[in-house]
Design a protein around this nucleic acid. Structure first.
Length: 655
RNA sequence: GCCGACAUAGCUCAGGGGUAGAGCAACUGAUUCGUAAUCAGUAGGUCCUCGGUUCAAUUCCGAGUGUCGGCACCA
């Protein structure tokens, strides 16, 4: 007798072994019809799987979120079948379900063209209507390899060869077509439904390695029903509207041009936004006890050789030479070695630690051409970089302080949540294993003590130390590393940083590399998308436009402008000979947060009509009151915040 | 860097082997107007760059550059 526990706690008994389908049928015809797959003891499996032991099961129907992954995975199989029917000779490789959809990588001489998608999609719909059952078969390993080699599917054969010996080799058949697959799948191709769409073709390396062959990838999106699909497609369209490249153009914030690929021309409004952010970060850093420095752009290569960057990143560095001198310089790709120079310039005492040295450091890196992306990935950028020279026992409190600072900043800038990744030692690295053990452990311990939860990003650390990455997501759903915190025992060693300890002996400081926004360029790109161009008043490049209705209001409007300017605000006067409707429209499209409308009435009564972005209502206030109110509203969030007392902070962080 | 697509007015885009067109923006004039487009007129182009085919190339072909979508990379 087999006992099957259902989600409601009830237990059913069956003779011998039993499949999910039989169980579903025994519960009811409706469920048997709706069930697509099942979870046995929490593991998603085929409905047709024979259950041989007592277990608890849960059926997955179209209503469940879990159905999405099944639909997407099955859609990938159907895509592969459609492609092989239409393009004989194409080899299949892998095709997983991913966020929002699926893809499949194919090997063929001629990559697919965007025009092919329509055809393939049509064939996929046809395969769905064929209603072919997904049939699972287990094959002995060698037989499977032979089989796939025989039918010319060399990639599949390679996959099987690389599977662990213990792995069961299963294939899934749908009609005449079959594919190596771990499963699970739904019952038939019809279960996929019609709510899918092929979205793009792309190149991708076999097994994600650029040394391997380039495959042709087809991406698709798939959902439970048409409504979900349409909602997704609409959401994509909406997201495109907040793309920072588009808004940057519309608001005239910046531009890029061919002569300076990967470097930004900041226009007046964009630069205003930039400096608003930079000034804010600077104030925050001062509050947290940082000192600010400025270091050279161009340095002799010997420094980069000493730091190890020359060896590791030489190909990504901009090199400079001059005719009359036999020296090679490099534009700095990062600031750390420079900060160590300042640290080393004088004899340091343990009393000076932790020494938090910040720089808005302009860096240049020759990023591969394909990596460039708007202002988010550029070749010339400025980091809100800082290096904390500290002793080993200060790592935890400094980590705590940094996480607190970063959270404060992200919150101020509208990011309530962010992801944290912990990247540990990479294959190519400097420093011995015991040093890495120490660095990784201290960073992990610090995270635990501070309560930072992270995902592990194996092997993705910097070459000199492990790092925490603070990840934000852009409008289109792409993740970007912004903040970072790295524990480094290596560079202080290489560049011979030291301080005199309590014991009068020389010690190596630990160096914490950290950034909150990362690069201003990238962060501003994210920020533009986050706010879709409609920045909070304190950040907005143009905070207020004073718009006149008639010429007679111009003098008064000018007075209003000057009063606001005296409060430190960025204000523009619009006294053009245009209708007020046109002015409102234009400045609204420019995302100006506040428009002050002044006509004859306002002049006479010394008032202003306030119209805020996004609202149609207006509020008429007396001039003094309005200036006072706007001045207050435009105050950056960090103003008037309590200073951070060193002692108190230490206690907080340690406690 | 790799695979693919694209590059025409300030912007968004149409066109096509015989040296180009729309809307918006700009400029000029009229209008002085009450909360998302006032009307009329004018001007605006090395059709990305270089090479090839052709009587003729912005259009076809090739290379380069840049941008976009992915992949790889990201100190």
């Amino acid at each position: 007798m087999l006992s099957i526990t259902l989600p409601d706690g009830s237990i059913r008994q069956y003779e011998g072994t039993v499949t999910g389908l039989t169980i579903a049928q025994s519960i009811g015809a409706g469920l048997a019809k709706a069930a697509l797959a099942m979870e046995v003891d929490g593991k998603l499996v085929d409905l047709s799987l024979e259950i041989t032991e007592d277990s608890s099961i849960k059926f997955v129907t179209r209503k469940d979120e879990a159905a999405l992954e099944l639909i997407r995975h099955d859609a990938a199989h159907i895509l592969a079948q459609a492609v092989q029917e239409l393009f004989p000779g194409t080899q299949v490789t892998i095709g997983p379900a991913i966020e929002n959809g699926f893809y499949y990588d194919f090997a063929r001489e001629e990559p697919f063209k965007p025009e092919d998608l329509e055809n393939i999609e049509r064939r996929m719909h046809e395969i769905v209507t064929r209603n072919e059952a997904f049939i699972r078969q287990v094959m002995p390993r060698d037989e499977a390899i032979q089989y796939f080699e025989k039918i010319g599917e060399h990639y599949k054969a390679e996959l099987i060869r690389d599977l662990p010996e213990t792995e069961t080799i299963s294939v899934y058949q749908q009609g005449p077509w079959l594919d190596l697959c771990r499963g699970p799948h739904m019952r038939t191709t019809a279960d996929v439904g019609g709510a899918f769409k092929l979205t793009k073709v792309a190149g991708a390396y076999w097994r994600g390695d650029s040394k391997n062959a380039m495959l042709s990838r087809i991406y698709g999106t798939a959902w439970r029903d048409k409504k979900e699909l349409d909602a997704y497609l609409t959401q994509i369209e909406e997201a495109a509207k907040r793309d920072h490249r588009r808004i940057g153009k519309e608001m005239d914030l910046f531009h890029l041009q061919e002569d300076a690929a990967g470097s930004i021309f900041w226009h007046p409004k964009g630069w205003q936004l930039y400096t608003n952010l930079q000034n804010y970060i600077q104030r925050i850093q001062r509050r947290y006890g940082y000192v600010e420095v400025r270091t050279p752009q161009l340095l002799d290569r010997s420094l980069w050789e000493a730091s190890g960057h020359w060896e590791k990143f030489r190909e990504n560095m901009f090199i400079a030479t001059v005719e009359d001198e036999d020296r090679t310089y490099a534009l700095k790709p990062m600031n750390c070695p420079c900060h160590i120079q300042i640290f080393n310039h004088t004899l340091r005492s343990y009393r000076e630690l932790p020494l938090r040295m910040a720089e808005f450091g302009a860096c240049h890196r020759y990023e591969p051409s394909g990596a460039l992306h708007g202002i988010m990935r550029v070749r010339s950028f400025v980091q809100d970089d800082a290096h904390i020279f500290c002793s080993e026992d200060q790592i935890t409190s400094e980590t705590a302080m940094f996480v607190r600072m970063l959270s404060e900043v992200y919150k101020d800038l509208g990011f309530e949540s962010f992801r944290v990744k912990f990247s540990d030692r990479p294959e190519k690295r400097a420093g011995d294993d015991s040093t890495w053990d120490k660095a990784e452990n201290s960073l992990k311990e610090a995270c635990e003590q501070v309560g930072v939860e992270f995902e592990l990003n194996q092997g993705e650390g910097a070459f000199y130390g492990p790092k925490l990455e603070f990840v934000l997501r852009d409008a289109i759903g792409r993740d970007w590393q912004c903040g970072t915190l790295q524990v480094d025992y290596v560079l202080p060693e290489r560049l011979k940083a030291s301080y005199i300890g309590e014991d009068s002996a020389r010690h190596r400081p630990v160096m914490l590399h950290r950034a909150i926004v990362g690069s201003f360029e990238r962060f501003l790109g994210i920020l533009i998308e986050q706010y879709a161009g409609s920045f909070p008043l304190w950040l907005a490049p143009v905070q207020v436009v004073v718009a006149t209705i008639v010429n007679d209001a111009e003098d008064y409007a000018q007075e209003v402008v000057e009063l606001l300017q005296s409060k430190g605000m960025n204000v523009e006067l619009d006294s053009r000979n245009e209708k007020i409707n046109a002015k409102i429209r234009e400045h609204s499209l420019q995302h100006v947060p506040v428009i002050l409308v002044v006509g004859r009435k306002e002049v006479e009564e010394r008032k202003v009509a306030i119209r805020r972005l996004g609202g149609a209502a207006q509020e008429v206030l007396g001039l003094d009151e309005a200036i006072e109110l706007l001045g207050k509203e435009a105050t950056p969030p960090d103003y008037n915040r309590a200073p951070i007392v060193k002692q108190k902070l230490k206690l907080e962080c340690e406690g």
